[in-house]
Design a binder for these strands. Structure first.
Lengths: 136, 136
DNA sequence: CACAAATTGCTTAATTACTAAACAGTATAT
DNA sequence: ATATACTGTTTAGTAATTAAGCAATTTGTG
């Protein structure tokens, strides 16, 4: 295999490892991947409406209604009136929601840290430089 | 953010990008991620039984029965009698199954290739060396 | 301005992927 | 030989999702 093929293969392995970890661990926190991703998305986009969540994840608006129902039942988010449009929602993340996602991300990042444990600090700096070039 | 944090963040972005691509593209091929992964697993483990598929993906045996039903309906695999144990199955991937997965992997790898397009061949060699150190 | 068209969120019925539990046939171990 | 374990299947139920339609609101246009 040439460099290119090996790199593609390794990136897939990284993806499978990370996906697998999330799927195994999230049930312990009582939420699903889409619930986790939604809260993360709302953190990065505080002004996002329900329809934005639908577009971000390729869900229907109906699915988002029910997703928000569950998140709200668990006290992770609160639906609020939108400040400028009465047909839209503004979705507020509760302290509980933020703390839950922080805890999950913390555990998740520790898992990823295990991956890069073999690297020296020189390697890490080099890897960072290389990853910074990715068009993400 | 220090090197470590940036790397963890970038690895997550890579994972999200790859997962998202698969989820968007697989429906066009008429199969689901688990169907795709199952055929890939069976390619790497020609002697695998249904119960091995269940263990590999954390499914119940009942779920695998139905998964194989679908794969067989679409002509992607064939259940065969196991050569040594009459209570087990041997699962044969058809030409159609192999060709389908080849086509998907080809498209998928091209997508990943886009990611690493910015790299010079020196960068690629370096990146490969670094990725080779990952404990995967 | 008036009113048609588009947007937004919600509801409901159906679909899909899955589990849990029970079953039948087969293999293993004592 | 007989109990125990393994393998795959079936069935009923659950959870996440879509599609389609509704109501309220907003936007665009004559």
């Amino acid at each position: 295999m040439n460099d290119n093929e090996v790199i593609v293969y390794k990136l897939r392995q990284i993806k499978n490892m990370l996906s697998g970890y999330l799927v195994r661990v999230l049930p312990q926190y009582g939420i699903t991947p889409i619930m986790m991703y939604t809260i993360e998305f709302l953190r990065r986009n505080a002004e996002a409406k329900a329809v934005d969540v639908a577009n971000e994840f390729g869900l229907t608006r109906g699915a988002v209604t029910q997703l928000l129902d569950k998140l709200e039942e668990q006290g992770l988010v609160i639906r609020k009136p939108h400040p400028t449009s009465r047909r839209s929602l503004q979705i507020h993340i509760t302290n509980k929601g933020n703390e839950l996602v922080d805890a999950i991300l913390n555990a998740y990042n520790q898992e990823i840290d295990k991956l890069i444990k073999p690297y020296s600090s020189d390697d890490l700096a080099l890897l960072r430089q290389l990853l910074d070039k990715l068009p993400l």
